[in-house]
Amino acid sequence: MTPTQTEIHITELAGYKLPKEVQDLLRDDLLNGKGYDACHRAIQAQTGIWIPELEQPFKDLDALLGLPPYDK
């Protein structure tokens, strides 16, 4: 089952809690050298949530850290 697509904005993040299984997936991805953009897309795949304001900053952070671009 594919989650319903939901776009939220950065101002709505303050009280948002990701499910534990999504938190674990993101932690593991970060420990395996995946960057911010990959985690943002993992959140979208797991929950259907997309935060458009974070797309470019996360790509920029990954580039700054020398991480490869997100690749499915």
Rank of each mutant, 00 (worst) to 15 (best):
K20Q: 12
P19R: 14
L25I: 08
I49T: 09
G33V: 04
H9R: 08
D28Y: 01
R41V: 01
L31R: 07
L61W: 06
G15F: 12
F58A: 06
P52S: 03
G66K: 03
L25F: 04
E55N: 08
Q56R: 08
R27T: 09
H9D: 06
A42F: 00
T4A: 14
K34H: 13
T6I: 13
G33H: 07
K72N: 12
I8W: 13
P52A: 04
L64P: 00
D60R: 12
D28G: 03
G35P: 03
T47E: 04
L64C: 03
G15N: 15
Q23S: 13
L61A: 11
Y70T: 00
D24Q: 10
A63E: 10
Q56L: 12
I8T: 09
E7A: 12
A14G: 13
F58T: 03
E7H: 11
Y70I: 00
Y16I: 14
T47I: 04
L25Q: 12
Q5T: 15
L30R: 13
G66W: 03
E21D: 15
A42D: 09
L65H: 05
I8C: 06
L13D: 07
Q23H: 11
G15R: 12
N32I: 00
D62I: 01
T2G: 04
H9L: 03
H9K: 12
K20Y: 12
Y36F: 14
I10S: 15
E55K: 09
E53I: 01
